[in-house]
Design a protein around this nucleic acid. Structure first.
Lengths: 106, 106
DNA sequence: ACGATAGGTGACCAAATGGTCACATGTCAA
DNA sequence: TTGACATGTGACCATTTGGTCACCTATCGT
C-alpha cells in the first residue's frame, strides 16, 4: 500500500470525511468527544480514526489517558497539485466561482 | 449517493487515479487507447471510466463509434477548498512569493 | 453488403471494507 | 487502592467493490 493509496482510501468513506470536517472546525479533540458527534459505536469511530492517522491526514498527541487528534492538511494539498495544472488553476477557480453563483441564484 | 461521495469513491482506486494521470498528460483518448496502457481487460477499464464519468471527474464526447475522454479538474479543486483554510493558504502563498523574491536577489 | 472495429450490458465470483462485540490495558481521582 | 474512565485488540459477519466473461449493438472501410 503506497502513501497516496492510504490517503485516497481514507477519504473514500463519508464518516471519515465528517471526522475531518469536525477537526477542521476545531482541532485537538479526543476519541470520546468525536464519538459523541456520531451515531456509531466507539469501536467504529476508533477504526476510522486509525485509518486517517495511517494516511497522515490526522496526527495525534497523547495527554495522560487521552489522545488528542489534529487535522493535517498537507496530503490534501498534494492531491490538488497532482491534477491541477498550475497554468489552468486560475481558470478552474473561475469556473468554481461561477458554479457557486449559479447555485446561489437557484 | 451524494456528489462528493461519488468523487471520493472514484478516486479511491489506483487504476482510476492512473487513468486520470493519463488524461492529465493528454486529453481526448478513446477507451481502446486507454486500455492499451493497462494490464486489465477492456471491461475492467470501461467500468473504471464509467465510475470516473459518474463522478464528473471525466467528461466524454462521442465521435462516430469512438468515445473521447477528457479530464475535468473542478471536483479536485473542490476537495482542496473543503479542508484548506483560505487564510492559511494566502499566508503560505505570500511566504512562497517572498521566498522567490529573495532568491531572485541573490 | 459485410467483416472488422469500438463500445456496452448483466451475471458472476473473489477480495476488501464497514461495523459490532467480548475482552484487555493504562490512567485518573477520591 | 480501587472503581471509573479513556483507549486498544482480535475475531467475526454483512455488504461493497474489482475484475472477468458471454453476448450484444453501432459504426467504419472496402
Amino acid at each position: 500500500m503506497t502513501d497516496d493509496d492510504r490517503v485516497f482510501k481514507a477519504l473514500a468513506d463519508p464518516t471519515r470525511r465528517f471526522l475531518l470536517d469536525l477537526l477542521f472546525a476545531r482541532d485537538g479533540r479526543t476519541l470520546t468527544e468525536l464519538e459523541s458527534e456520531l451515531e456509531m459505536s466507539r469501536f467504529g469511530v476508533m477504526k476510522h480514526l486509525r485509518v486517517l492517522e495511517e494516511a497522515n491526514l490526522v496526527v495525534t498527541r497523547r495527554s495522560g489517558r487521552e489522545k488528542l487528534h489534529f487535522l493535517n492538511p498537507v496530503p490534501i494539498r498534494e492531491i490538488h497539485d497532482r491534477w491541477i495544472d498550475k497554468y489552468t488553476e486560475l481558470h478552474t477557480t473561475t469556473l468554481l466561482e461561477l458554479k457557486a453563483e449559479l447555485e446561489d441564484e437557484s
